[in-house]
Design a protein around this nucleic acid. Sequence first.
DNA 1: ATGCAAATTGACAGCGCTGTCAATTGTGTC
DNA 2: GACACAATTGACAGCGCTGTCAATTTGCAT
Lengths: 337, 337
Amino acid sequence: MRVRLEDVARRAGVSPKTVSRVLNDEANVSDTTRQRVAAAMEAMDYRPLSSARSLAGNRSFLVAMLYDNNDNPASTYLAEIQDGVLEACDAHRYNMMVRPLRMRGDDFVRRLDAVISDHHPDGIVLTPPITDYAPLLKRLRERQVPFASVSPMARVGNIGVAMDEQLAARTMVEHLLSLGHRRIAHVSGIADHGASRWRLAGYREAMAAAGLTADPKLVVEGAFTFASGVAAARQLFALKKRPTAVFAANDDMASGVMWAAHERGLKVPQDLSVCGFDDIPLASQLWPALTTVRQPSREMGKVAALQLLEVLRGRGNGQMMQMPFSLELRNSTSRLS
Amino acid sequence: MRVRLEDVARRAGVSPKTVSRVLNDEANVSDTTRQRVAAAMEAMDYRPLSSARSLAGNRSFLVAMLYDNNDNPASTYLAEIQDGVLEACDAHRYNMMVRPLRMRGDDFVRRLDAVISDHHPDGIVLTPPITDYAPLLKRLRERQVPFASVSPMARVGNIGVAMDEQLAARTMVEHLLSLGHRRIAHVSGIADHGASRWRLAGYREAMAAAGLTADPKLVVEGAFTFASGVAAARQLFALKKRPTAVFAANDDMASGVMWAAHERGLKVPQDLSVCGFDDIPLASQLWPALTTVRQPSREMGKVAALQLLEVLRGRGNGQMMQMPFSLELRNSTSRLS
DNA sequence: ATGCAAATTGACAGCGCTGTCAATTGTGTC
DNA sequence: GACACAATTGACAGCGCTGTCAATTTGCAT
């Protein structure tokens, strides 16, 4: 039969409650006792039964990672974040569950409620764009479910992880400028997503700093998908004065831009420089390999989850951590000839 | 405070045990009672507490999806399967957890044991290649944990889902043959994976049927990764008699082959036809878009999970389901000129 | 030694549900 | 209408753990 806490207690010569204290790493246990109990646990290969712990202790040891699956079918970006979150949860013996949650539909908050009521996660990791949906945040606070966010729009008052995406975008565009490009287009993402705003802002900032008055035709809104990148590029190529470089707000759209360039017989990078953002695996599999901003997604998932876990374990309040970006200069960009 | 089963019972005017029966969809409840109880549950928005159900009923309502993360960092293929498994679990109010489990290392079975002991999944979904690791299967049977497999090597004695990959591969190669190709190379996957064997066998079958004696130099072993596809292609291109078409055992390797072709200045499909297997999103984002075998991964995850759930819910024994494949003829293959 | 506060430990109830088994009600037969 | 039998319902204990609070031990100043 299964080894129970009581069995460990008997072997260690203490009360069950004391074993429970050791198990939960509580204070007020003498060192000698703690060691004796730990030894007994080890010797008996004791595995606490999480359903019993949950029932008695009124917590679930569960972290739910929520994502929007409207526009994100099986995206690599999310898979990497998930991987990082899982690693962090494992380290603290928390379980993780992944939940898609469509943002469209007015019953969004109701569906969130259902997730909480059905699964009782101790905490939640939010991924873009649901990091910024006010009714959801409101409800989480009302129900007092701690959460951490990956790249939320609001840095203040949130815990989790973020990157200086605006600076990253600006740096990327400055690189294009340094290659001699002047007619630089931007394919932005869905307008109200933070990622779109920052990346667009970084683009504008770099252009302005170079003294280039922004031609509004050079900014086309996409939807973070490959297909939208293709569509945006076709639109840009139809312009009287075609851009010589395109900065897409993510790699999927950048790959769409490259596809459309091929379609039109434009050589990348000779006739058109293209760059993206995220550095998903696809970026290095394209020909030419895509110049892009590397975002350490896996690490970001991990760091966000660790901030949350700090709160859940009563170790602190968690912080908003900042991650570094880097430019991956590959072969899809070149000096303007 | 939370609505408990007892509260529902009081409102419906029955005993708690009867509510429990309705909740668990058990037999031996009269229709009138069942409806009365269901109405009370509905009216009170009753949400059973899963930790209590697990503790009392000695089950977890948890399905664990296991995958090997040696060679599969954040693969889209797995993300799609996961999506399908999740959908199936949701439909039956089961939870799902995703667990990486490195196959390398002799403590593999011990790590599996730890997952079972720590999380007590009611059942497990296995993804390739851990569908075929004998010690793991042995242990699962010993511990009597039901499991379903996605594309296991053994069709008999397993439940889950599979595709006729050999026929699919053969059909793909026959397509190349119909385009006039004769020197057709194959980049295979890791030798002992079922996917590699079937796809290689299908290739050989088609070649033999066309009366072509297989040139062993035309078969190069890869590892299902982009990089291995590049390496294999370089090797093939160095041959005195270069192939005119390459069939790669998956899309990642096919994209590597295309990359290497670009590198060597070979035009696809004019100088070289390339095709893959799986139809991951990448396939249609490449230029030229990749001709490939479509594998309905998401659906397969769902179907495999449904077979498992049938067992878990005591509804039957589950079956090995067969999924259809289809050829996606795109632009990376063309008639031999 | 003595007294007192602080640290450590334990007794006990109960978290919300289901398994077991007994009690009750319904159904068909002659 | 009485009987056997099946279908339905309920009483009760207990799953394995933790919260509460009381009991005991320890450390320290006097």
